[in-house]
């Protein structure tokens, strides 16, 4: 049933013209199912390929680089038209990318980049982590409109690049606004339970009335912190404003209930821009820029968060 509708859908899509897309076979080497976001990225990539009538060969590397290299070699052996790669680590790709280049198969990087010569891949589609933090900071500046505000920060895993960059971006975003002060900053390891534990200690160490806003490096920690704020007898979203990053379904549910204020989307749709660039490259030879930045969309309480939740919850987050 599903297969049939898929066939009809792709047949309809192909019918008008797009002969080129009809012949496209693309290999996708995904890291594995390390997080909900990763699962959503896989779902969206499959959807994007289906929409364009592309035959997508999917390989799950189970978080191992050797599996990704194996997958890329097998894609080269199958003579695919292009390869999408979400690299698990940054180093050690030169040899296999060289092989792809010799076979004249363009490689497009999704979500993360690699430490290899730029001519070894067509383009990299990633979000700008610093920019995400900056959007969060600017949102808070606007929301507070000059009023004094003590901010607590839940950092990601210490030393990880999202934690470093999202912290840096937020500080850039609030720079020059002396009414906003980060009074406590501690790691919540990107998890709900640590987010809750650390928020509990913030509330006790500073006193709930003394904290005016929370900035969390990801939504999961914010969801945990919301529970801690509620258990302390305060109203999350009102007594303490909450802004976080990622835009996972559960934060939209919290926003729909008025318990969180804003989230910045780390879009799982990295494949859309990548495939657009690829199609332009194959049909007209337009070389895309080496880095395509995805949009970091800001969701606030003005959006229909219930609808966003409904749309996102089926993506595998």
């Amino acid at each position: 049933m599903k297969l049939k509708s898929l066939l009809i859908a792709s047949a309809m899509m192909l019918a008008p013209a797009s002969v080129m897309a009809a012949d496209l076979t693309i290999g996708f080497s995904q890291i594995g199912s390390e997080s909900g976001w990763r699962a959503a990225e896989t779902t969206v990539t499959k959807q994007e390929a289906e929409k364009r009538g592309i035959d997508l060969k999917f390989a799950d590397a189970q978080q191992k680089q050797e599996n990704q290299i194996k997958a890329i070699r097998s894609f080269i052996a199958q003579d695919v038209d292009a390869i999408l790669l979400a690299p698990v680590v940054a180093t050690g790709w030169d040899e296999v990318l060289e092989e792809a280049k010799d076979a004249e198969i363009p490689v497009l990087l999704l979500d993360r980049t690699v430490d290899a010569s730029e001519d070894l891949y067509l383009t990299a589609v990633t979000s700008d982590l610093v920019h995400e933090g900056e959007v969060a900071g600017k949102w808070l500046v606007e929301e507070m409109a000059g009023k004094p505000c003590n901010v607590v920060e839940l950092q990601g895993t210490t030393g990880s690049s999202p934690a470093i960059d999202r912290k840096k971006g937020f500080e850039q975003g609030i720079a020059g606004h002396d009414n906003l002060k980060i009074i406590r900053s501690q790691t919540g390891d990107f998890t709900r339970s640590q987010g809750k534990v650390v928020m509990e200690s913030f509330l006790k160490a500073e006193g709930g009335a003394n904290i005016c806003a929370l900035y969390a490096h990801n939504d999961d920690m914010a969801v945990g912190a919301i529970q801690a704020i509620k258990e302390a007898g305060l109203k999350p979203g009102q007594d303490i404003k909450i802004v976080s990053i990622d835009s996972v379904p559960d934060i939209h549910l919290a926003m729909a209930a008025g318990e969180a204020n804003a989230t910045i989307e780390l879009t799982p749709n990295m494949a859309g821009p990548a495939l657009d660039a690829l199609e332009a490259y194959l049909s007209s030879g337009t070389t895309p820029p080496k880095w395509i930045q995805t949009e970091s969309r800001l969701y606030t309480l003005k959006d229909d968060n219930q609808a966003v939740y409904e749309a996102k919850k089926g993506l595998g987050y």
């Binding site: 501690q186 790691t187 200690s201 006790k204 160490a205």
Partner: peptide, 14 residues
């Protein structure tokens, strides 16, 4: 763990 959280030191020290 509680000392670490209450101390307010940066997480690099945890």
């Amino acid at each position: 763990n509680s000392v670490i959280l209450l101390s307010g030191l940066p997480p690099e020290f945890n």
